Simulated scan of single mutants.
Amino acid sequence: MAKTEALATLTVPVVCWSEGGVEHSARWRSERGVPPPRRVVIADDSLKADAAYRLACEGSALLWRGDYQNARQLLQALARRLEQKGHRRKSAASKASQADAGTAFHRHRQAQAQRAQVLGMLLLPLDADYRIPLRRAPDVRQACLEAYGSPDGPALVSLREILGLIGAHEWRRKGVAIPALGAAIHPHYGVFSPLRGEYLDLVAQAPLPTTSLAFDIGTGTGVLAALLARRGVARIVATDLDPRALACARENIVRLNLEQQVEVLETDLFPPGRAPLVVCNPPWLPARPSSSVESAIYDPDSRMLLGFLKGLPDHLTADGEGWLILSDLAEHLGLRTREDLLAAFAAAGLTVLGRSDVRPRHPKAGDREDPLYAARSAEVTSLWRLGVRAAP
């Protein structure tokens, strides 16, 4: 067992540990921004699941030196023990009434964080070229390059994160079929994947106020910009600030041969000028994200939503439309009221021209065991058509 620390003189966190009487160090990688573990235990195939679970719960990281596939089995065993421990809490939360849906949400996020903390204690080594030096380990070099960029020395990373890298690489390689687009979108690691298609159907079906110019604010994978281009909009300016999203959107636009119609621009919310159609699908829940990919779900203090609404009148033509794609899940969770949303429209000088609604189709909407079932089963996603309110 050894203590670890982030070396203050370096710009990256470093894990230090003792193994076989020799001191070692390696870069610590965590996309969730988790600090380096304070204690490290060398572990291999002889470690029993109960002992591993106890050590992980106590805050000891397990640096794996055994078979890779056995490490995966151990991670599954840890997950089962967490599920058994939280079964009664989950059952109680699933019975929460509408009045305490907000409490259920915060308990759910707390349980998710605790689960991530324990499961994140099983660590794998990465060599300087992103190889995993373990028996039966897969080749994760390309997945690591896509997520981390060029290698800069040996590292330690949680097995859970490695599995996330592998999954993201497969999504990027295979793509996500988008029926409304008639093609696939290839999400990059850390960029939210458009798996929920109902909001895309809203954009595909809403009457276009123009086919000349549109802005796509916070483009992410570029899926909405591509959809507008396929619907015949001659020019779309798609914006984002996240480097991964910008690279992802540009790659998808080129892959779909839409680069003559779509320009991807790095900027905060709006590009210069005005457009007769401005589209935005901001994060739906006003809460703090715990990782980069969650930034597409959680919007602290509704910053992006309110920024879009406040800036829309200055970037929308007088007779144009702003399309806001937003779920009302936050309302059912007690995080925002419909009155709050309508008041934000009014404060920005906007008026509602119309609204299209759709029910979610994802499995959790019908899962009565889900702790947020009451809210998810009532959720509606809307495309709000907004215009600039005429001066009195």
Rank of each mutant, 00 (worst) to 15 (best):
W323P: 07
G311W: 07
Q114K: 04
L47G: 03
R131M: 09
A79I: 05
L195V: 08
T381S: 05
P133F: 05
A52M: 06
W64Y: 02
E83K: 11
V233W: 05
V191Q: 00
A128H: 00
R196C: 14
A183Q: 03
V223T: 09
G322C: 04
V223P: 05
L119I: 13
Q84D: 15
T4A: 10
S46I: 00
A26P: 02
R173Y: 11
C280N: 14
R80S: 15
R141S: 03
L145T: 08
G197M: 12
V157G: 10
L326W: 03
A184N: 13
D319K: 02
L241C: 06
L246Y: 02
A275R: 12
H169E: 10
R376I: 00
T221Y: 08
Y199P: 04
A245H: 04
G175W: 00
I42N: 11
E146G: 08
A111P: 08
T4Y: 04
T219I: 11
H332F: 06
R54S: 14
V14M: 02
R107D: 15
R38P: 12
V191Y: 03
S158P: 05
S94E: 08
V22T: 10
T4D: 04
V34C: 02
G153Q: 00
P154K: 02
M304L: 11
G20M: 11
Q69G: 06
G387H: 05
Q205C: 11
R376C: 02
G86F: 15
E259L: 11
L312T: 02
S30W: 05
L258G: 09
P194S: 14
R359S: 01
S212C: 07
P138V: 01
P243T: 11
S46Y: 09
P371R: 07
G102Y: 09
P187A: 04
A155G: 00
N252I: 06
V118P: 15
L202G: 06
S46K: 09
G190M: 13
E294S: 01
R107L: 15
E266A: 13
R38M: 12
I162L: 14
P243I: 12
I185C: 10
I325F: 13
E251H: 08
A71W: 00
S158V: 06
D242E: 09
C144P: 05
M121E: 12
G149M: 10
V237C: 08
A347V: 00
R274W: 03
